[in-house]
Write a protein that binds this DNA or RNA. Structure first.
Lengths: 220, 220
DNA sequence: GGTCAGTTTAACAAATTAGTCAAACAGAAT
DNA sequence: ATTCTGTTTGACTAATTTGTTAAACTGACC
């Protein structure tokens, strides 16, 4: 009943709270198909309930889509922000962001594709995202993301331990290298002739090779 | 007539070939909304024609979507492949890929988001993509992408002019840094507090900073 | 002027899909 | 046992959306 197709993964147990089961099913369906491509009936089927029940709990597709979007944000950003805002030394930040983010994305393969697609199709959500993120203001968030990091980078540049780089570029380059392969996963797999296992293995390797590459670029 | 909404850009002149006008309109709409979110009527409106005419020329939404997808592939890959497969020295390849790709993406801001979303929602298209790309076989394409480049990298590593790196990682890291910012454009703009002009300026800068960063990482 | 092929349109049909609602149901409290 | 509340369902509606078709139009050619 929860299992909807031969290759579908069984998700939330049937005895779990119905609302949770529906949200989990919605999460899975929205991730794979995107908001526009998702069908309320498919979500109901995947949750093992009548589709009227989905409306009973979430009223409209829009509300359900919002709930899923918020959840997706909550999975993607907090860890990374926490690491970057911490007092850990720069090398450790790089290694920890790469490892934590890759671990998370190995378990949520559709997350980057889903988030990027949603943001491209409904760019106004980018603002909503900023506000709903860790409950602070956008300005505050920027401070957390780039403040400490910027200070560390300034100091390192003065000491001559790191080549100068703006914190924005630092974060953008690092996130690019970590996230892009997952966002473009079907493309990367096809071009390199990989199967799922090979891709997973490559990304495990990249937990080490990305930080090595990245830190090498910042040698003075 | 072609202009459909206040903030819409006028596209193809009304006296252009009707089929071309429809394909251009479809291109624009599919890019912004994705295949699932696009409406045949919106395409017709944007092309300034009756929506039956869209079916007259392209039969079904699926066929039109395929035509647009093929066109998008044709815009995205050929230049990059050409540069990477060429005999230019490594440093020049890096600089030329970055510059050419960023130039192209500045003019097609929705392209990466569209392609990544389509590939995530319909992963089977990745195969189609490989085959329809430059008319060669996947194996042949891999050879063009990684063959010459691999030889150059091997030699450079032996000479001690470059740190050793596999051609696959070389390409993946480079493409990540170039493309990701465009794919995540609404997110990047929101987090960094940028407007369109600032984003464009940053990407112009990155034509130089990405190659610098990238080549610095490969110093021995 | 007439006709002929290709183009364009208005009107229509068919299917899909979000959302509603009254009735059935289940379990707890009285 | 009865009632009551929150849950679940089947049947329905309304709107949207893809696709079709016959007729109208247009310009080239005779």
């Amino acid at each position: 009943m929860v299992k909807t197709a031969a290759d579908e993964i069984v998700q939330t147990p049937l005895d779990a709270d119905t609302e949770t089961r529906i949200l989990d099913a919605a999460h899975a369906v929205f991730m794979r198909r995107g908001t526009a491509g998702a069908r309320m009936t498919e979500i109901a089927r995947e949750a093992g309930v009548n589709h009227a029940l989905v409306h009973y709990y979430f009223r409209s597709k829009q509300r359900l889509a919002d709930a899923v979007f918020r959840r997706a944000i909550g999975e993607f950003f907090p860890v990374m922000i926490g690491v970057l805002a911490s007092d850990a030394p720069l090398e450790e930040k790089v290694r920890r962001v790469a490892a934590a983010q890759i671990d998370m994305l190995q378990k949520n393969r559709y997350l980057p594709g889903y988030l990027l697609a949603e943001l491209n199709h409904y760019p106004e959500r980018a603002e909503q995202l900023l506000n709903s993120m860790s409950g602070t203001t956008p300005a505050n968030l920027r401070a957390r993301l780039f403040g400490t990091l910027g200070t560390q980078l300034d100091e390192a540049a003065r000491n001559g331990t790191f080549r100068a780089i703006r914190p924005q570029e630092f974060v953008l380059n690092l996130v690019s290298m970590v996230v892009y392969a997952f966002a473009a996963r079907p493309l990367v797999m096809a071009i390199m002739g990989m199967d799922d296992a090979t891709f997973t293995a490559m990304m495990e390797e990249r937990k080490a090779t990305i930080p090595a590459f990245f830190l090498a670029a910042l040698r003075p």
